[in-house]
Computed example of a mutant assay.
Amino acid sequence: MTAAVLRDVTLRDGLQLTGKALPVERKVAIVRRLLGLGVPELEIGSMARPDLVPPMANTMELIAALNPEELQRCWVWVATPRHVERAAAAGVRNFQYCLSVSDAHNKANIGRTTEDSVAAMPDAVRLAAAVGGSIQLCLATSFTCPFDGPVDPERVIAIANDPRTAGAGDIVIADTLGQAHPAQVAELISAVRTRTPQRRIVFHGHDTWGMGVANTLAAIQAGATMVDGSLGGLGGCPFAPGASGNTSTEDILFATRPDWFTPSILAALVDESAELLAELGEPNRSRTAEGARSKADAFEWVSQPSAGEYSVNYLP
């Protein structure tokens, strides 16, 4: 299986549904901790309206607190050219331009039709290029829509092949509701790889139906070279009823075993995740984190909690 880069999305998709906002200082500490542990890339925030997604309200302050080297490894969610313009002025160079394949979800999430979002993308691409930035085409609801049900894969292919999206260096295929299954994921990723322009393919999965890791592995085998996860499986979309947390970062790393990932790195991630989730009052959905706290001491990946670690409830 080809290795894939992990992008941790805890600070954007992970925080969207939490009832408690994190202060900027805490977010900065998480960014630096994850980058320091070797996590290759992060998604750190969103330009969405703060009244609609309150946990993202201090994204601009977070961007201002990071240095250019750190920002080179960080992505910010955008949905309009104006978002790109504002984020670029603050120092962002990696933009995830998101739209939904289904009109109903795009209207709920962004307030416009899918066609309107596609039509605006060339301006977003131009603004990103003007600062030497990278832009991704992120396709939410690539498999199912909470309002309209199953999504025709040909709609995904058509958007990916639309000349107005040609400026994207990457394409993100998102299982927003976590309702896809591995064969379905493999088929769509393969179709994107063989029938659309050559781009890095990113898979963004949720674990609502317990298929997060299986779908991620299927995506990698089919050609995805970047995959998204969040600490402890935190996350969900506020405009997608029925969506639960992202696929766990810990679970993805344990399954894929990149060269930089070691038992001591896992132990540090589990500690960081437990502390964060306790702060937020959220359950830990990671099975790897649960396993790392087991009594199977002969297994090198098992570790004990660090001194002062917060208690946290693990989901069965």
Rank of each mutant, 00 (worst) to 15 (best):
G242I: 03
D152Y: 07
A48N: 10
P238L: 10
W209A: 14
T208S: 15
I220S: 06
P153A: 05
T176F: 07
T80G: 11
S264N: 05
V156I: 03
T288L: 08
R164G: 05
D162G: 02
S100R: 14
R257T: 01
F147D: 15
P40T: 09
G132W: 09
E154N: 13
A21I: 13
L280T: 12
W75D: 13
V227F: 01
S311T: 08
E272P: 00
S294F: 07
T194H: 11
A274V: 02
P54M: 04
P23W: 11
A160E: 02
I265K: 02
I171S: 04
G233W: 06
L15N: 05
V227C: 00
T216P: 06
Y310A: 06
I135G: 03
A168D: 06
F147G: 13
G178K: 00
H83N: 15
N284I: 03
G245F: 01
C138M: 09
P283L: 15
R287Q: 11
R293C: 07
A65F: 12
D51P: 01
L217H: 08
I265H: 01
V270Y: 00
A214V: 10
A240K: 12
V270W: 00
H181I: 08
W301D: 14
D103W: 11
T165S: 05
C145L: 12
N67H: 14
G232D: 05
C98Y: 04
L35A: 05
R200L: 15
S102P: 09
S286C: 02
Q179M: 14
T80K: 14
V39Q: 03
R49C: 13
H206M: 04
A160Q: 00
Q184M: 06
I135S: 06
V5C: 05
Q136P: 00
M47Q: 11
N246K: 02
G133L: 14
D259M: 04
A29I: 01
S100W: 13
V213T: 11
V156W: 00
L62G: 02
L11H: 07
T262P: 00
Q198W: 04
E282S: 14
I173F: 07
A298S: 15
D51A: 15
R32V: 11
M1Y: 10
E250Y: 03
R285T: 08
I110T: 15
D116A: 15
R73G: 08
C138V: 11
P23E: 09
V5D: 05
G235A: 09
A119W: 09
R86I: 15
I201K: 04
I189K: 01
S134Y: 10
R193C: 02
A29P: 02
L217A: 13
I63A: 10
A274L: 05
F147Q: 15
V227L: 02
A186G: 10
A128M: 07
P153Q: 07
